[in-house]
Amino acid sequence: MSSQDQDSTRPLGDGSDASLQAVHADLAANKPEPKDGYSVLPLFLLGLLSALIFVGSIYFVHYRGGIDPLVYDERFDPKKAAKTATVAAVDPIAAGKRLYNQPGACATCHQATGLGVPGVFPPLAASEWVTGSDERLIRLVLHGLVGEIKVKGNTYNGAMPGFGLGSGFNWSDEKVAHVLTYIRSEWGNAAPAVDVAKVTAARTQAAAGRTKPWTAVELEAIP
C-alpha cells in the first residue's frame, strides 16, 4: 500500500460510535494538509464537474427542441421551420356546407338540394341572385329580406331572417363568407368565392347600423 493510501484513512480509536463521530468531525473541520500529491483528488473532481457541466450545457442547447412544449423531436428547431407548424387552414366550402345544413339555417327553406320549394321558397341553384353581385348577396344574408322577389322568372313573397352579427343567428363575418362561398360553388353554381373582408366592409361601412331586412328593390339599387 502506498503512503498516500495510508494517509487517506485513520483508525477509529476504540471503534465506538462516539469515536467514529469525533474522528470524522475532525476530518471534516480540518482539511488535510496539502502534502505532495494530496490535493489531486479535489482538483480532479472539480475538473470532472466543470467538464460535465460543459458537456451537459452543450447537450441541452443542441437538443433543446426550441424549449417548446409541442416539439417531440429534440433536433427540431421551430425557428428554422416556423411556417410548417401552422394550424390547418379552414376550407370555406366544407365549413359553409356545414353551416348551410345547420338545423334552422338555410337548408330548412332552400333545401339541401338548393332547389327550394316551388312557389314558397326560391331556389339557390342557378339563381341569378346567388351567382350575380356578391355585394347584394352579402347584404341579403347579413340582414335578411322581406317582400316580393323575382328569382329565375318566378315571383316569391316571403321573409328571410338575417344571419349576420347582431341578428338572431349572430354568424361571424367568416361564417357568412363561408356559407356564401359554398352556395356560389355548389349545385352547378360557379361564381367566385366571397371574401371575408368584403362582408366586414359591407357590415361595418356600406350598410353600417342597418338592422331591418332589405327589400328586393333596395338591393337591386346596389351594383
Partner: peptide, 17 residues
C-alpha cells in the same frame, strides 16, 4: 395535429419546406 409535423428534416436548401 399541426405539432406532429415538428420533426427535424435534414437541411438541404429548398427541400426542407
Amino acid at each position: 395535429y399541426p405539432e406532429a409535423a415538428n420533426v427535424y428534416v435534414a437541411q438541404t436548401e429548398g427541400q426542407s419546406g
